[in-house]
């Protein structure tokens, strides 16, 4: 009974390895190298721990009196202590070298790069995709799409305080420091959705500063890219049209951009294709029409301290705006 229960507990621990945000669920080339390093160190340290505990147990049962009488044993013991010292030094040096080597050779694949500019701010992520000339083509918020197998170059900048970009399934973390540009290159090996998270404490809503990384095939990526680069779709229903009017008349348009309309604010996330995203509020809520309405109605209760103000809207206006935004696919 007891072994079965402990086996179950061990299996429960293994669920950590299938998480979309786990260094043990490595799906990127750099993450694989790091995972190998983690496993190597865990293995070596486990062996050392077993050896140390074994030695401890052995020394508890050892008869000291007898050993002390025998100079031969004493000499042997001294020799084994020196050997252990040498082995310790070797292991430490070896692990240091392995760690150095793994970090030196974090592999991000070959071939031409896909450049994406990342701007972190309190408390969301802005991803800018440049076109062929290097000019910004469109912006996305809290959702990073990348083609599988390509070398991705993320140009990291922070707009206010220090943040850190961490997609454990794809690569190691890298700090984003205001006033300087850091470069992180990575490569996703398999299509899938991974989770990234700010890894440097950045204030009130640090914990709600997540984003989704969607790695997809080249064809899917191309399709997504073209859809995102297009201006916002026109509202089709009466309700959505009314919602657009409300959006433009109220403070919303002062902070948010919807390309193709007169909303050109740059303080908040670009909402041109907000209806195509999986989450809102930097990974806070699943994007549905209901959650959009809840977010607009009272952002400060859902994510206290964030920079989206509570804009007083009537229930009709709220319904219309959420219909409009939800339809921005």
């Amino acid at each position: 009974m007891i072994p079965r229960a402990s086996l179950f507990l061990l299996l429960l621990l293994l669920t950590g390895c299938t998480n979309p945000q786990s260094a043990l669920n490595a799906e990127g080339s750099s993450a694989l190298a790091l995972k190998d390093l983690i496993l190597l160190i865990v293995l070596v340290c486990t062996l050392i721990w077993l050896a140390v505990v074994g030695f401890l147990l052995w020394s508890l049962t050892r008869r000291r009196e007898a050993a002390r009488q025998d100079p031969q044993t004493e000499r042997r013991m001294r020799r084994s202590v020196y050997t252990a010292l040498a082995i310790t030094a070797l292991i430490v040096a070896g692990l240091t070298l392995a760690s150095f080597n793994a970090t030196r050779h974090l592999d991000a694949g070959e071939g031409p790069e896909v450049v994406i500019r990342v701007k972190a701010q309190q408390w969301w992520w802005q991803f800018t995709y440049p076109n062929a000339d290097g000019e910004p083509a469109f912006q996305s918020a809290n959702e990073l799409h990348i083609p599988v197998g390509r070398r991705i170059r993320l140009e990291l900048e922070a707009l206010d305080v220090v943040h850190s970009l961490w997609i454990p399934s794809l690569a190691g973390k890298l700090d984003m420091i205001p006033g300087r540009k850091n470069i992180l290159t990575l490569q996703a090996l398999r299509p899938g959705t991974y989770r990234g998270q700010c890894a440097e404490f950045c204030g009130l809503q640090h914990s709600h500063m997540a984003f989704a990384v969607v790695a997809e095939t080249a064809a899917d990526y191309q399709r997504w890219w073209l859809a995102q680069a297009a201006p916002a779709s026109l509202p089709q229903t009466e309700e959505a049209r009314a919602g657009q009017a409300v959006f433009m008349a109220k403070p919303c348009a002062a902070c948010h951009t919807i390309r193709g309309t007169e909303a050109r604010g740059s303080t908040g996330p670009d909402l041109t294709h907000v209806g195509s995203r999986a989450t809102i509020g930097a990974g806070l809520l699943e994007r549905t029409r209901g959650s959009l309405a809840a977010w607009i109605a009272d952002p400060q209760t859902l994510k206290p301290g964030n920079n989206m103000p509570l804009v007083p809207l009537s229930s009709d206006e709220l319904r219309q705006v959420s219909a409009y935004l939800d339809a921005l696919k």
Binding site: V161, V162, E200, F201, G203, L204
Partner: peptide, 16 residues
């Protein structure tokens, strides 16, 4: 204090 026990600037600085 609410800026972390390491108090990194700019988060702990005058502006943020």
């Amino acid at each position: 204090p609410d800026v972390g026990w390491f108090a990194y600037v700019p988060l702990a600085g005058p502006q943020y």
